[in-house]
């Protein structure tokens, strides 16, 4: 900074400076013809319509239909499509199952890869620095903090899913089984005491754990 006084960031009410910046960037890109406003609106509509209830549906079906559960564990993407759910652009989606002997956790230590199409945007704690570190260094401690106590003989498997890819533009089609390198998304949640959103996610993991694999 070349000047010697603090000045307030440009804000609009309680919004941070970044809010004005994001709006200005949209304006600029639309003016320049890089993006159409409709493309941006479509993206917002998609994001706000994503809900962990979709992921929960997959799991609930697996509880009552052993053959479906098998298909879910073999190819979660195909299983989601079978139920008419949007698995997201990732060509590979992995579901894992918690059993009496194995418990799973999912993290992205490098950023925040997450199966947003099936679970909605990740919770803030999933993106937080302490979770990104401790999920691989002290996962049992994290589980304890979340109210999950595992017996000593339960194996703990942590999935660090960092290889999320996005699809080539030409192959991208929302909700369609298309796209090459897809986006990896990794769900995981163990806290049963969070908001409604988290409860739906916890359903996912209480028996057939859906989580998304990378790519």
């Amino acid at each position: 900074m070349s000047h010697d006084h603090d000045h307030a960031p440009i804000t609009n009410g309680d919004e941070p400076a970044a809010a004005a910046r994001a709006h200005a960037l949209e304006e600029l890109l639309v003016e320049k013809g890089v993006l159409r406003r409709e493309d941006v609106r479509e993206g917002i509509d998609w994001l706000v319509s994503r809900t962990p209830a979709d992921g929960a549906r997959l799991v609930a079906r697996a509880w009552v239909d052993p053959e479906f559960k098998q298909r879910l564990l073999e190819d979660a993407r195909a299983a989601a499509l079978e139920l008419g759910l949007d698995p997201g652009p990732s060509p590979v989606l992995v579901a894992v199952e918690n059993t009496a002997h194995v418990h799973h956790m999912v993290v992205c230590t490098l950023c925040s890869c997450y199966p947003r199409a099936l679970l909605g945007p990740p919770p803030d704690w999933y993106k937080s620095f302490p979770y990104r570190t401790r999920a691989v260094s002290d996962p049992r401690g994290v589980l304890t903090e979340f109210g999950v106590e595992l017996d000593d003989d339960v194996e703990l498997h942590v999935l660090d899913s960092t290889a999320d890819r996005d699809p080539a533009p030409a192959g991208w089609q929302r909700g369609a089984d298309r796209g090459r390198a897809g986006r990896a998304r990794h769900p995981r949640l163990d806290d049963r005491r969070r908001s409604a959103r988290a409860q739906a996610s916890a359903l996912i993991f209480s028996r057939a754990r859906v989580f998304a694999g990378c790519r």
Partner: peptide
């Protein structure tokens, strides 16, 4: 090609996607 590789790490296993 991308693989899921499992590593023993203390009291748990970590699976990491590695090219």
């Amino acid at each position: 090609r991308l693989y899921s590789v499992g590593f023993a790490r203390g009291d748990h296993l970590v699976y990491v996607d590695i090219f």
